[in-house]
Simulated assay, not measured.
Amino acid sequence: MTFRLLTAASAMAIALSIGGAAAAQTAGSPPFDARRGVFTFAAGLERSLPAVVQVTTLSSAGGPTTGETEPKPLMGGSGVIIDAAQGIIVTNNHVVDGGQKFTVDMTDGRLFDAVLIGADKATDIAVLKIEATGLNQVEIASSDNLRSGDLAFAVGYPLGLDQTLTMGVISGLNRSGMGDAVEDYIQTDAAVNSGNSGGPLLDSRGRLIGINTSILSGGFGGGNDGIAFAVPTRIM
């Protein structure tokens, strides 16, 4: 009797183990959209895309003596809303540096004036605030849990284009040697170009893991060579 009970218990344990392994394999598989018949990460990413904005930095008007009466664009970049209720947007310091006026374009077509409420050159992070309702915000994940080989998605407004999403992997962690005061960068091969600065680096669930800040380029045009760096959320 004892032997039979042990055998039954062992069989149940084996069955549960096999079932658990199958469930784990299913859970770890790329998301599959049965209706369209494709593997996709769109569901998680689409929740975050409305939180990614275009940031424009303008100079102050020169005044009558210069003949300039309207502010002129100095820099264009990207940003991401991290607090919808308060209208808080994170971007790069180098995107807003030297500006006197800032505007934020939303994915729904709305345009807002923004106020610079904080900037840190050492980490290349700046914070803008807008007065608006009906905003979306991104979920923030801990960058401490990242591993090389994880999928990564860069979102922004590169080279004058509308919002653009590119995919790559985490190529390395704790990168330094770029000459900045605080260096603890995430390296990715997701395509990042001029205009992506200040935009989010997202994980495969659409959560914020870093702020895209720079690229390393060996070409004459200074374009993307598959080596980009992001400020991790742990020091954001």
Rank of each mutant, 00 (worst) to 15 (best):
A122Q: 09
T123A: 04
T123F: 03
D124L: 00
A126P: 12
K129F: 02
K129H: 05
K129M: 10
E131Y: 05
E131F: 04
G134V: 08
Q137C: 04
V138K: 11
I140R: 10
S143W: 02
S143V: 03
D144V: 11
N145C: 02
L146G: 10
L146W: 05
L146V: 06
R147I: 08
S148E: 07
G149N: 01
G149H: 00
A152H: 03
G156P: 01
G156C: 02
G156Q: 01
Y157Q: 00
L159M: 10
Q163R: 08
Q163N: 04
T166R: 07
T166I: 11
M167H: 08
V169N: 13
I170N: 01
L173A: 07
L173H: 06
L173R: 10
N174K: 13
R175M: 08
S176D: 10
G179D: 08
D180Q: 13
A181E: 13
V182P: 05
V182D: 07
V182R: 08
E183F: 08
E183K: 06
E183Q: 11
E183V: 09
Y185P: 00
Y185Q: 00
Y185T: 00
I186C: 04
I186D: 04
Q187W: 03
T188F: 05
T188Y: 04
D189P: 04
D189M: 03
D189R: 02
A190Y: 07
A190L: 10
A190E: 12
A191Q: 11
S194N: 15
N196W: 15
G198Y: 02
P200Q: 06
L201F: 04
D203Q: 05
D203A: 07
R205H: 10
G206E: 13
R207S: 15
L208V: 14
L208I: 14
I209Y: 10
I209Q: 05
S214Y: 02
L216A: 13
L216R: 14
F220G: 11
F220A: 15
N224L: 00
D225W: 11
G226Q: 03
G226D: 03
I227W: 01
A228N: 03
F229M: 00
A230G: 06
A230H: 01
V231P: 02
R234A: 09
R234D: 15
